[in-house]
Design a binder for these strands. Sequence first.
DNA 1: GTCTATAGTCGGATAGAC
DNA 2: GTCTATCCGACTATAGAC
Lengths: 228, 228
Amino acid sequence: MHVDNKTKSSKTKRSSNAHDRLLEVGVDVFGKHGFDAATTRMIAKKAGVNIAAIPYYFNGKEGLYHKVVGYIAGKLESQVKSTLVEIEERVAEGNLNGEEALVLLEKLLEKLINFMVGSPEAPRFARIVLREQLYPSSAYDILFYRIMAPMINAVSKMIATATGAMPSRAVSLCALTLIGQVIVFRVARETTVRALGLKGYSSDETAEIRRVILEQTRSMIEAMSRTG
Amino acid sequence: MHVDNKTKSSKTKRSSNAHDRLLEVGVDVFGKHGFDAATTRMIAKKAGVNIAAIPYYFNGKEGLYHKVVGYIAGKLESQVKSTLVEIEERVAEGNLNGEEALVLLEKLLEKLINFMVGSPEAPRFARIVLREQLYPSSAYDILFYRIMAPMINAVSKMIATATGAMPSRAVSLCALTLIGQVIVFRVARETTVRALGLKGYSSDETAEIRRVILEQTRSMIEAMSRTG
DNA sequence: GTCTATAGTCGGATAGAC
DNA sequence: GTCTATCCGACTATAGAC
């Protein structure tokens, strides 16, 4: 086999650039065309490496795809990891009050919005994630366990704590609607941009989206707190 | 060329079943694999017609795809058309008060939820729509003008009327977050089902999703009405 | 209107030189 | 570790029989 990014080969400092370049280009080409329609020829050409490097480093097209999904999972994880850990710790301590939970929830959503809407790298990663949602492959689990489940869990817990509700299916559904309010701007970016006559998401528009979503989060939490 | 569904051939009553079967199967195969990866072989085989029928009826693979997207647009349109027309009429009359607008908004969202979450046909159509969102092709316009724009418009108008706000970018963004709360259950269906430990969306779960979204709609409208 | 046969292209993977 | 050359299978579309 070959060596990982981090455990370099014993001979050279950067064992092989081809390996890393294939991963990066794989994100774009698999994202744009999907697994079946993407061709190893496109990927190799864009990466500036020989086609034979794909079977060599990744045991073929499918092996490359799985590594690409893992690579994406790591990138997404890094965007929210610190906040997820903070939430986990505060929950473990057991002394989280409603106001603090709302602050943590807002912090997490803000990070999600900043990345999903504001980051120029988001579309590249989102395309593959959405393809896996549409039609899960054997790589779906990687995304579910590393990204989806931890996010839904954290949001649900913060909603429950902030509103004083017991964790329940209804709370989880609320968590999903909150996440939905963010991802719609990623999933339906083209539609949003065209419907609003934008040229894209500038930092002003990102800020306005953030404001709208956080406002709705607060009014939702307040309404749920009132009705119990 | 060939004849349309409606303007049958002069010889037989149902000019050609092959034409219609290709459309139906096209929805599934293009949805599952995407345009590039879908093969005319698969489609023809599943439809039980000869491969040569595709160039014959639709002028090739791309022609079939465009007809499939138009077919889907018609199906989605039919789900909400009556409510969209009702909203259009009431707005034209100019005597719509806030409560009535909220009722119409809820009616529209309910139809959207019932179809997107509750209908067994929704996944078939949604896959192609989402692919077009991900990476718009020349068929994207069909969906935008027939489905997306009218929906966003109607929801925005009802929010503005219900809250007494002037139509603005912020109102449109709110409309998108409302729509996002619905479509997340379609886009991230696999994730939702797995995270909540469901087997799928039963009518009970659809009802609970509807309840959660309509509750949040009301609390959003109330909050916006208060703050102006 | 539906079929078979086939042309012409392009896909992924491998072998083996260097 | 990277290259060229090549195999073999699968693709879309067409031609022409029926």
